[in-house]
Amino acid sequence: MSTLETPAPPPQPPAAATVRPLAKKRARPSEQLFKWLVVGLTAITMAMLIWLLTSVLIRGAGSISWAFLTDKPSSNPAKAGFNSALRGSIVLMMVTIFFAWPIGVAAALYLEKFAAQSATLTERRLRERLATGRVTGLGATWARTRLWWLRIRPRVVHLVDVNISNLAAVPSIIYGLLGLAIFVGVLGISKSLLAGGLTLAVLILPIIIIAAREALRAVPMSIEQGAMALGATRWQAVRRQVFPAALPGILTGTILAMSRAIGETAPLIVVGGVVYSTAVPSLNPLDAGNEALLAMPLQIYFWTDQPQASFQAIAAAGIIVLLATLLVMNLAAIILRNRYSKRW
């Protein structure tokens, strides 16, 4: 490339076309600036998280002890323990999952596997039956009603869809008002772990439905169709093939929904108030209706709200326990997902 201008004797390579020289790499300050801006903003966000975690750890680590986990609450911060709150949260979660899981999964199964499926066959059968004129009176009305339902079903399902995603965005404190009015007010349940657990169940219901639907959707249709081709009905195919395949995904979603519920404070305050109690709740969920509404976040709130600085330390210790619980739950979800996740 050095002999551009030399007159070339025949065996020389062809002279290159002349072009402007290439620009040398140059610094672009605005580029660098922008890059450091977005890096910096990301770093600030992470730094805030680290600040949060370290400040809680520093404040609360000294109060963490075995006694803290096993002692009852006390008006003396030095003696106050987290045991009642811990037990309360465990019972709350049992109640919550007992109500939310079956309903949420059943709703997801219906919406994903039945309501969304085409009903052309049923529709044709009903039409034919009506056309033959063999069905009359009540039978015909029933067949027409079913036809009408099949026709509007897609729209209804869409509305239910919109409704569920809207529910997931309703502020949690609103669920507290619902629980207060319905479970405490109308049903007359005392302000107890049962009332709190029911309220949290309603709160996480849309989350479980959404997660379960996603898990069901991830199972390929071919599995279901394969089973149905062998003569299984849709329900048999779903129960025997689709549901087991989707179960790890559903459980992962459930754990994540629980980790949302276990940290919820506001709805519990609305349902049960903030009571100072030295009771130690029984771990038997059947007693939940009689146990005062105690839970980790409520205890943390109660302590944080106290003016004395010594309560702040045990509040921080309570937060550490709560965050550790969340960490364990999230790790369980991750392990479950990684162990059972299949790529279809």
Binding site: V56, G263, E264, P297, I300, Y301, T304, Q312, A315, I319
Partner: peptide, 8 residues
């Protein structure tokens, strides 16, 4: 949990 943010 938002209670943690409140404490923070």
């Amino acid at each position: 949990p938002t209670i943690v943010l409140g404490f923070f």
